[in-house]
Computed example of a mutant assay.
Amino acid sequence: MDNNTINATVKALADELLAAQVEEARSRLLDDRLVDLAAAELDMLMAQADEIPLGEVVSRQALKDVVRVFAFELNLGAGVIALAGDMAQQLHRTAQKDAPKLKELLSNNSASQWLNKIVELGEFRRLILDKIGHSVTLHQFVADHVLILIEQQITQRSPNWLQELTSNVDIENQQGLRGRLKSNVRQKLNSRVRQQEELLERTLRQAVAKTIKKSCSDLAQLDESVWHDAIWQLWQVVRDESVSEFTKGLDPLDIEEFLVLGYNEWRKIRQTEYIQRLINTGIDVFYNAYEDVPLTEVLEDVGVTRNHMLAEISRFAPPVIQVLDEHGYIREILTRQFKPFYENPTTLAILQRAIKHT
């Protein structure tokens, strides 16, 4: 047998072996026992993972790189963002239909536990009240609105002649003696009114600031039992309310805007050094705790068990493989994977030596 014949025979044998291996692998993937095979392989992997610590498989930097991509760099596509509108419509309708009462979502026992924890935050509560009490912006805001209310009341209750005298009419257009007398009275009265207004405004702003500071100080000094009783009574009032009661006044557009605004704000703050430092600190804490811990224990601590993994394989693998095979993709994938081996000169040389020795 000459070399050309041998080469042709070797090539034909390689093609036959490739086709046979592709079909054998395809049949195993399509076999009803695929899940059983996957379970056996998973058990072998878990047995090996029991001896391999996290630090040998994943480096600290690799873990940070993954978080960086998904937390700091990944952006939702325009299609998903546009979907927020449809999602808001559905969420709004779903939230209104057969909405449970608050007590059905949060039991008295759970509410009591949350309440106890909130009441324990005495120092935090005092800090917040202190910030509110000394907020100049808040003082100005309250005083401005009180002044507006007082002005409205004065205007409504003032007699017509006083309103006329204090109105902003052009006094230079007044004619005759009566007009000049009226202009003089208006000028004196306006001057006096302005002085009283300025005094009233200063006094009121000082009183508002003093009242807010004292109220916040008094609240901060309240005993924890008073806070506990007050919040508990509030819970007793609202616990029988339906969840839908708290969504009244919100329409789907409001929900959509909240979703979009929240996502846009997250995209901004996630780029700040502060937020990235916080997340990276969390990664360091996690890695320091689990670097030398076997993979199986890490998975168990994060709540991923063998049953979880096997359930996901059973749920997705068989139908996905079936669809891929119906479109001819399984055979193509396997052929691409195995073909380089059968075209490798080393493999062909092995087949050639086997043919010569037969």
Rank of each mutant, 00 (worst) to 15 (best):
V260R: 11
E224G: 14
F246Q: 01
H228K: 15
G249A: 08
L261G: 11
G249M: 07
R239Q: 12
T211V: 03
V260S: 03
V237D: 06
Q206P: 01
Q221F: 00
R239V: 03
Q233T: 10
D251F: 00
V237G: 01
V243F: 08
D254L: 08
Q271T: 13
P252H: 03
E245R: 02
G249D: 08
S215H: 04
D229R: 05
R239M: 03
W227N: 11
V226A: 07
V208Q: 07
G249R: 11
Y263S: 06
S217N: 11
Y274M: 14
P252D: 01
I275V: 15
N264T: 07
W235S: 00
C216P: 12
S215A: 10
W266H: 04
F258C: 13
F258L: 15
I275C: 10
T272H: 01
Y263N: 06
V226R: 05
D254H: 15
F258Y: 09
F246G: 01
V260P: 02
A207M: 01
L219D: 10
Y274F: 06
I269R: 04
E224N: 13
D218E: 12
I212M: 03
D223W: 11
L250C: 05
E241I: 00
E265A: 14
L250Q: 05
V243E: 06
I269L: 10
R239N: 02
W227R: 07
Q206H: 12
L222C: 10
E241Q: 10
A207V: 03
K214V: 06
Q221A: 03
W232H: 07
T211N: 02
D223Q: 14
Q233L: 08
S244N: 07
T272C: 02
L250Y: 13
K214W: 09
V237C: 02
E241R: 12
Q236P: 00
V226Q: 11
I269N: 12
W227M: 08
E257G: 00
I255N: 04
L259I: 15
I255P: 04
G249Q: 10
D240L: 06
K268L: 14
F246Y: 08
G262K: 00
L250H: 09
A230T: 12
T211A: 08
R267I: 09
Q233S: 10
T272W: 00
D251Y: 03
E241F: 14
D251M: 02
P252C: 04
K268N: 09
R267P: 10
T211M: 04
W227H: 10
D229C: 00
D254F: 10
K214M: 06
W266A: 11
I275L: 15
K248P: 13
G249I: 11
A207D: 02
K268M: 11
C216M: 15
D229I: 04
L261N: 14
D223H: 12
I231S: 05
R239A: 05
H228A: 13
D229V: 04
V238Y: 08
V238K: 01
D251E: 01
E224L: 08
W227F: 13
E241T: 04
R267Q: 12
I231E: 09
C216I: 05
D223K: 14
Y263R: 14
I231R: 07
I269Y: 02
Q206I: 13
L261K: 14
A207T: 08
I269T: 11
L259H: 04
K213E: 13
